[in-house]
């Protein structure tokens, strides 16, 4: 199969957005953070989209459920278990389980099942396991005539629900993001028949319309209670904005960027490791915040950006160089 450079570029953009969305210092800016987080938050939806796309592109012709799960166990579950055990142990040592009224063993098991409350991004892994487990159903959908209808229905659920509270429920997260997984499968199928390449202008214009609408809605957006169950039927503006940007970026990347861009390919190649590890770096930075001299939020923002992005890339590369092939089982890349 021909290498999909545009997916590499999109994956690189996605990880940059995800990491930016997890920066803490913009929340200290008076009023301004609303638009920053609107722009960068929820790029996780793009990761789910890419998973769906790659599932369709790589698995649909030679799918074997047992082999597929075994591979995922090695490359995704293994790093997750290592890192969640590390995070949970640190949490228990710091007495964090007591805030949740949990015993240490209960906290440990709960963390493994939901992703824990310590290193934010780890919630993604229990959710993506649900996608892996249901892969035969997605394969059947990918081959069905009603694939695109299912995608539209899935996306409606995605934009008219919100994330579960603190993302700590893999099944509800799955329901919230499944539309983007299906969208990835649909995009893969449409690309196969040359539809997106041919009609890229239409897709981009629809994307602009969706994204523009989300900007208008966000400017009037009021406080919403957190959670999935409390928000069924409520428009998730951040999710809509990511759908709009996805519809703008993907056709443009397919049309004009289906060639290697080394920096983006490099970022894409370590994106899984960055996803796993940047939460630890982000925590370490927030831990040092009180020790830093008083400075403006902008200075802190620049410092946090450099530290989180720089240190995460450095740590991933160091682990890769040290562990070589085995690094995939530890940090996923």
């Amino acid at each position: 199969m021909q290498h999909k450079h545009h997916i590499d570029s999109f994956r690189a953009l996605s990880i940059l957005f995800v990491m930016a969305g997890h920066l803490n210092t913009p929340s200290m800016a008076e009023g301004g953070s609303k638009w920053f987080y609107f722009l960068v938050s929820n790029a996780t939806a793009w990761f789910v989209f890419i998973s769906g796309y790659l599932f369709c592109a790589l698995e649909s012709l030679r799918f074997n459920y047992r082999r597929y799960l075994a591979r995922k166990l090695k490359n995704v579950v293994s790093p997750y278990v290592i890192l969640i055990c590390l995070a949970s142990t640190i949490s228990i040592v710091r007495g964090r389980h007591e805030y949740l009224d949990l015993s240490a063993p209960a906290y440990f098991i709960w963390s493994i099942i939901v992703g824990g409350d310590f290193i934010g991004p780890l919630w993604f892994m229990p959710m993506i396991f649900v996608f892996f487990l249901l892969s035969p159903a997605f394969l059947a959908t990918a081959q069905a005539k009603w694939l695109h209808l299912a995608t539209i229905a899935g996306l409606m659920i995605s934009v008219f629900t919100c994330r579960p509270i603190y993302n700590l429920n893999p099944v509800l997260s799955f329901l919230h993001f499944a539309g983007f997984y299906l969208a990835g499968i649909s995009a893969c199928r449409l690309e196969e028949i040359g539809h997106i390449q041919k009609h890229w202008i239409i897709w981009t214009l629809i994307g602009l319309l969706v994204f523009g609408s989300s900007i208008i809605v966000n400017s009037e957006n009021t406080h919403t209670p957190p959670g999935f169950m409390a928000n069924i039927g409520r428009l998730d503006v951040a999710q809509v904005s990511k759908l709009g940007l996805l519809m703008i970026l993907m056709p443009l990347l397919m049309k004009f960027m289906n060639r290697e861009v080394r920096a983006l390919r490099f970022l894409a190649s370590i994106s899984f490791g960055l996803f796993f590890l940047h939460g630890f770096v982000s925590f370490a930075f927030s831990f040092t915040l009180p020790m830093l001299p008083e400075m403006s939020w902008m200075s802190l923002f620049i410092m946090e950006t450099l530290v989180v992005f720089g240190a995460s890339i450095f740590i991933v590369r160091t682990i890769q160089k040290t562990l070589r092939e085995r690094s995939r089982h530890v940090i996923g890349c």
Binding site: D101, L102, I109, I113, V114, P164, I165, L172, P226, G227
Partner: peptide
Amino acid sequence: RTDHVTEEETLLRFFR
């Protein structure tokens, strides 16, 4: 209300 919903949705209820 928030405490109750949080406990339910994050599955904490089953571990306390």
